[in-house]
């Protein structure tokens, strides 16, 4: 039982980075495909499309920072907290990266036809980023209390 608790503690430490990277990879790939599609159709704005498509990669950075903030000797006393904070933060980073990728893909698809809505089309992706930042910041705050 003690070994399981310790393993969960380690899972909590690495999950934000691991699942954050997984979500970022999926999100960037979705938005990247949309960027490639848009570049086929348009004659300009290529850099802008590629720029939008990498937005979900910020989640892996948040994951790395959370991982370092949780990094400490894993004991039966601290493992539960490490798992709870780390794993929930990881889930948020995973999902927000994927769905941010979809939001970015939609923004790319819409703004290629109507470039004037480029800024507004990015609003959903920015709001999703805000939720990831909430999880990131409060994971850091709680990590200090362990």
């Amino acid at each position: 039982m003690n070994d399981l608790v310790i393993a969960l503690g380690w899972l909590g430490i690495f999950a934000p980075m691991g699942l954050g990277a997984l979500g970022a990879a999926i999100g960037v790939s979705i938005a990247g495909q949309a960027a490639i599609g848009a570049m086929v159709e348009t004659d300009s704005g290529y850099g802008r499309y590629i720029g939008i498509s990498v937005i979900p990669s910020s989640n892996v950075i948040y994951g790395i920072v959370v991982m370092f903030s949780l990094q400490q000797p894993v004991t039966a006393h601290s493992a539960g907290a490490l798992f709870g904070i780390g794993f929930i933060a990881a889930l948020v980073l995973l999902y927000t990266a994927v769905w941010q990728g979809r939001a970015c893909a939609s923004a790319i698809a819409a703004s290629k036809t109507k470039p004037e809505i480029f800024g507004l089309a990015l609003a959903p992706a920015a709001i999703v980023e805000g939720f990831a930042v909430f999880a990131f910041v409060f994971a850091l705050v709680l990590a200090r209390t362990i």
């Binding site: 979500g23 999926i26 979705i30 495909q33 949309a34 960027a35 490639i36 599609g37 848009a38 086929v40 159709e41 995973l94 999902y95 994927v98 979809r102 893909a105 790319i108 698809a109 290629k112 036809t113 109507k114």
Partner: peptide, 18 residues
């Protein structure tokens, strides 16, 4: 599924609005 099912992101993004 985490990512939903988006097999034709590139194709749809390459099509102009009708």
């Amino acid at each position: 599924m985490i990512a939903g099912h988006d097999p034709y992101v590139m194709e749809m993004a390459s099509l102009p609005a009708l």
